[in-house]
Structure formats: structure tokens, C-alpha cells
């Protein structure tokens, strides 16, 4: 287990260094997030629909679409000079490789969300002060689940044509449960209602994380080999 995590971290750190050097994907994702939030602001009628009703949906649609950019990037960068082949002949275990990619993706998405959340608060003037900690908790809970599935699928499509497009299509149904859960919990938090009202959704999110993180860790080995 220790060895597995050390190797995973080696891979993740390499990914993050590479990402930090080029910055294209990260900057694209951040700009994309800001852009979507701005567009949403103009896409609603403030006199007809109170901001607070739409805010959770806007937040989560923005986050999930920004995450797609990260997911596409993860294995794409291993294709240059066929580094993936090098990883596969090395003693690195498939599970370590998956966790490394998962960690790097989570950091990437966390950075995007870290920029997106303050922008969201600023643009939509939602009161997050009192609920900041539980809100971050929900964001982490929902993000983990769909990034875990997305990381697996990005390895699955890497050898196919139109990989980016295919990834979006196959990932979409898998976004439904975390998205519904996250939007509902966020709505209750922002509405100042007690978390106990959303226990069902929190359980759903937690169960989704447990099932799909373990499933993806197990299934990953069947996706990368030729």
C-alpha cells in the first residue's frame, strides 16, 4: 500500500510539473470557468427568477464541464513519444498509475474550482460565509466521484478516434447522480436550511464515491494494455 502510494505520487507529481510548465490546459479551464459563469449571468432574467434558485445548478454545470478539460488532458500527455508504453513496461503497477492520474486530475480540478467558487460568489452574490466548510465538503465529495469515473474513461478512449468527444458522451450519464446530489445539497446549504434535510443525497454521493473509486481502481488494468 505504501509503495503503491509512493509510485502514484511520483506519477502525479510529474503530471503536475508538466502542467505547471505548459499551463495551457489549466489556463483554458480557468478561463472557461469564468466565461461560463459570466454567460450564465446574462442568460437569466433577474426579475423573474431569484439568483439563489439557479445558483447551485450554475455552479455545478460549470464545474463538471471544466473538469472535462482536465480529464481529456490526463492521458493525452502520455501519448507524446509514447510515454504510456514506457509506463507500461516499467514496474509501475496499473493501480498506481490510475491513482497517480486520479490525484493529478483532482488537484487540477480543485484548482479550477478554487478559482471558480470565489468568482461564483462574486458574480451571483450568494451568501456562502456561514456554510463555507460544508460547501467545500460537498464539492469534494461530488468531485471525487465523477473524476474517478472520468479518469478511468479517459484511459478507455485514448486509443480510439475522436477520443475527446467520445469521453464526453460516455461520461454524461455517469455525471447524473453526483450532479443531482451536489445540486440538491448545495441548494439546501445556500438556502440556509439544515444539512439533515439532505442526508439522502449525502449518502448517495458517499456511496457513489465508494463504489466507483474502488471499481475504477480495479477495472483500470483492463483499459491501458494493448
Amino acid at each position: 500500500m505504501g509503495e503503491l502510494l509512493v509510485q502514484a505520487w511520483t506519477v502525479a507529481r510529474k503530471d503536475l510539473v508538466l502542467e505547471f510548465r505548459t499551463r495551457t490546459a489549466l489556463i483554458s479551464a480557468v478561463v472557461f470557468t469564468a466565461l461560463v459563469l459570466t454567460v450564465f449571468n446574462f442568460g437569466r432574467d433577474p426579475t423573474a427568477v431569484p439568483t439563489i434558485d439557479l445558483a447551485p445548478t450554475i455552479l455545478w454545470v460549470t464545474f463538471t464541464f471544466a473538469a472535462m478539460l482536465a480529464l481529456n488532458r490526463a492521458f493525452q500527455l502520455e501519448l507524446e513519444n509514447q510515454a504510456l508504453e514506457g509506463l507500461l513496461v516499467s514496474p509501475l503497477s496499473r493501480t498506481s498509475l490510475y491513482w497517480g492520474k486520479l490525484i493529478a486530475n483532482l488537484v487540477f480540478v480543485a484548482v479550477v474550482e478554487g478559482v471558480g467558487l470565489p468568482l461564483f460568489v462574486l458574480f451571483f452574490d450568494v451568501p456562502v460565509g456561514r456554510v463555507l466548510v460544508p460547501l467545500i465538503g460537498v464539492i469534494a465529495l461530488a468531485t471525487l466521484g465523477f473524476v474517478a469515473v472520468g479518469t478511468l474513461f479517459s484511459a478507455l478512449v485514448i486509443r480510439t478516434r475522436f477520443a475527446e468527444l467520445l469521453l464526453v458522451v460516455i461520461l454524461l450519464p455517469f455525471l447524473v447522480p453526483p450532479l443531482i446530489g451536489a445540486v440538491q445539497v448545495t441548494a439546501r446549504l445556500l438556502g440556509g436550511r439544515p444539512l439533515s434535510e439532505a442526508v439522502g443525497y449525502l449518502k448517495l454521493l458517499a456511496a457513489y464515491d465508494i463504489v466507483f473509486v474502488s471499481l475504477a481502481s480495479f477495472l483500470f488494468r483492463f483499459t491501458v494494455d494493448e
Binding site: 509510485q7 511520483t10 506519477v11 510529474k14 510539473v17 508538466l18 510548465r21 505548459t22 500527455l77 507524446e80 513519444n81 509514447q82 510515454a83 508504453e85 514506457g86 509506463l87 516499467s90 514496474p91 509501475l92
Partner: peptide, 21 residues
């Protein structure tokens, strides 16, 4: 194929692969 990451230096590449091995 060289299996090298274009945006890392030669040394960084070697250190990465050394760690994996």
C-alpha cells in the same frame, strides 16, 4: 519511441524513470 516528456529536461526525465524503477 523515446518515452520522454518533451517539456521536462533530460535530467528530470531520467529522475522520473529512475523513481519508477
Amino acid at each position: 519511441q523515446s518515452h520522454l516528456y518533451e517539456h521536462l529536461t533530460v535530467r528530470e526525465n531520467l529522475l522520473f524513470w529512475a523513481a519508477l524503477y
